[in-house]
Design a binder for these strands. Structure first.
Lengths: 233, 233
DNA sequence: AAGTGGTCTAGACCACCTT
DNA sequence: AGGTGGTCTAGACCACTTG
């Protein structure tokens, strides 16, 4: 009725993890070869491989071609953040989504923006500022730069109907993404747009994406007071 | 000289991704079965499986037992945050790490703490407040609760020598982790401890860990002004 | 140069989910 | 109830990394 077989590779992973945590294999130590572990635990090497793949992703071990897998010295907390399209995020809270285009103009990238993309020369991009609303209240203030070479179609989009956010997600290949979180004090202008008071602590998400090596877009999203972001795993 | 074979499963993944992005398979559509894709691309089903595994992790497709894989309606931005032990973080910046124990006492969990752990009844835990320093300057102010049932050894540790942070990482099994980020205005007390002014926007990392279903520790880490966190992928 | 992980194949069984 | 993904096995070759 029990004796559950479960997934074998998970058992293997747990066994190896247990050894690591129990200090049977100290941090920095070399672990046995996949093949040896397989022989010892009586399973195929592929099964051990699957387990090690998971442990590596969890940040517990490092695997190299020779020298075998090593137990990482100090594992970091590793968590995955999922940032949905703002409209979905609002709707998931059971609130009505709204969106207001503030400005849309072409501009040369300033140094701060070039830094985010990692480019040395100024480029003409499309700069879009917009306010996302939840139940009519300000939710997120977005200041976005879009490289029209990577997303030419955006020129013909009515950004007062569909947010740049959403259009890009739907029409742009997903390449590399880099996200930065920080906290800022609301300036007078930002405070006005987010219907709060100057000086309030605001959560900032800075997101930059590339397609291959080509910049696509970068956005600084300033959230209204009370916003928080969760990550799991 | 070229015709690089590379990893087959990556090619398969790219091919499928390309179809998704080119709208050959619209969001919400059902994709062909693994076996069919394998036949079409001339590889083993396991190879397609590996590719799909990656696409699922990237958040592009969902796979179900029957009904085959589906293209996700709106892919979220998915990024992985790595939070090292504070000492390593400081040392990685090339600065000298320091650590000051502020207080250490037993206390009953307040409702806010019980919420984080998802428990209903108050529990006696060890509460540790500490300040992490970088080059002598305040870096992170930590307010931590530790369930001594899950980490009994902590009672005998001199927390003025080794931070609770570090001891727990080294001596506690890694289970589920939940992280929350937010922004707060510095209160007078916090401002004093972080050597800044009241009202400054501060970045907050709230981290809670369990072993199985048992609470281990939760910490509210308030970072000094200027702190930011990066996530990739 | 050799060891080791990374990968691919082919075949098989199982468990879950939808129909 | 049947289809489909999830997994395991066994064997093989390759390529990267280290000594």
């Amino acid at each position: 009725m029990n004796d559950a077989p479960r997934l074998a590779w998970i058992d293997v992973r747990n066994e190896i993890r247990a050894r690591i945590l129990s200090r049977a294999c100290a941090p920095g130590d070399r672990l046995p070869r996949d093949a040896d572990i397989a022989a010892e635990l009586g399973c195929a090497r592929a099964t051990v491989h699957r387990a090690m793949q998971d442990l590596a992703q969890l940040g517990l071990v490092v695997r190299k071609r020779k020298g075998g897998p090593h137990v990482l010295r100090d594992p970091m907390t590793r968590a995955t953040v999922q940032i949905p399209v703002t409209r979905r995020e609002v709707e998931a809270r059971g609130e009505r989504y709204g969106h207001r285009l503030i400005s849309r103009r072409n501009a040369q990238t300033r140094p701060a923006i070039m830094d985010r993309f990692g480019i040395a020369e100024p480029v003409g991009m499309l700069r879009v500022r917009a306010l996302h609303l939840a139940d009519g209240r300000p939710y997120i203030l977005a200041d976005r730069w879009i490289d029209t070479r990577s997303a030419p179609g955006i020129r013909d989009v009515d950004l007062s109907r569909e947010s740049a956010n959403e259009w890009l997600v739907r029409n742009t290949p997903v390449g590399r993404v880099e996200v930065r979180f920080s906290a800022i004090n609301a300036g007078p202008e930002t405070a006005r747009q987010l219907a709060t008071t100057a000086g309030r602590a605001l959560f900032v998400i800075e997101r930059t994406t590339w397609t291959g090596a080509a910049p696509v877009t970068t956005v600084e999203a300033v959230a209204a007071p009370g916003y928080h972001l969760a990550a799991q795993s």
